[in-house]
């Protein structure tokens, strides 16, 4: 994700004093690209959510949504994920203050909260499976596991990226503008959280 561009819009690149580069909008290329990517992701989750909404009532005699959900448990894990957005904000704020130590701490806390959420999802999936809701049990189960699985993969990728970023900050190997890189990771992380708010509402809270 931390790709760098031909036209560095930041003051940290060793070469930008040569002056040939500029950005027509004043926005950095990396940030613009991240927003474009997230725009594209909206359609990805849009497709998956639509599939789920179409199929959530189709489980014939097999387990249906209302029989398997454990709303208090999922509420708790949702709360954990939302809190990780708060710690992500704190990480970005530390990065803007050039406070490497706190940046690393808050990124690590964010990753841990994310990992806790994923652990909760693993636990939830396992429980559902034991209760008899396999991936191929019904159209409902397939579309549910596909949707929440895709989200879980996004969180997991986020965790890998966050821990890698912590390592790269530690070794001072972040190319380009460090604060902006942290901010870009933050954009991704918040997006994944917002998607979860949608999923939690549409999948768990609204009765089928």
């Amino acid at each position: 994700m931390a790709d760098t561009a031909v036209a560095p819009a930041t003051g940290h690149d060793a070469h930008d004093d040569h002056g040939a580069h500029h950005s027509s909008t004043g926005l950095s290329n990396n940030k613009l690209a991240m927003w474009m990517f997230l725009g594209s992701e909206c359609l990805l989750f849009g497709g998956l959510i639509s599939t789920y909404m179409l199929y959530r009532g189709r489980h014939s005699e097999n387990l249906g949504p209302d029989q398997v959900w454990d709303i208090p448990f999922t509420s708790a894990s949702s709360f954990v994920l939302l809190m990780s957005s708060l710690t992500m904000v704190l990480a970005v704020s530390s990065a803007h203050r050039k406070d490497d130590r706190n940046t690393k701490v808050w990124l690590m806390v964010t990753a841990l909260l994310g990992a806790l959420f994923v652990a909760g999802q693993v636990y939830e999936f396992t429980t559902f499976y034991r209760e008899g809701l396999g991936f191929t049990t019904s159209l409902f189960s397939s579309s549910f596991y596909t949707l929440t699985g895709f989200h879980g993969v996004h969180v997991t990728v986020g965790i890998i990226m966050l821990t890698s970023l912590v390592g790269m900050i530690g070794k001072n190997r972040v190319p380009g503008d460090k604060a902006e890189t942290v901010e870009l990771f933050g954009l991704y992380w918040h997006f994944v959280d917002v998607v979860w708010i949608l999923i939690f509402t549409l999948v768990y809270l609204i009765p089928a």
Binding site: A7, H22, S24, N29, L32, A33, M36
Partner: peptide, 16 residues
């Protein structure tokens, strides 16, 4: 797509 959009939006020559 992401690459070219950013290129056109952000990297036009001065005055364009």
């Amino acid at each position: 797509a992401i690459n070219l959009i950013v290129t056109v939006i952000n990297m036009r020559a001065p005055g364009m």
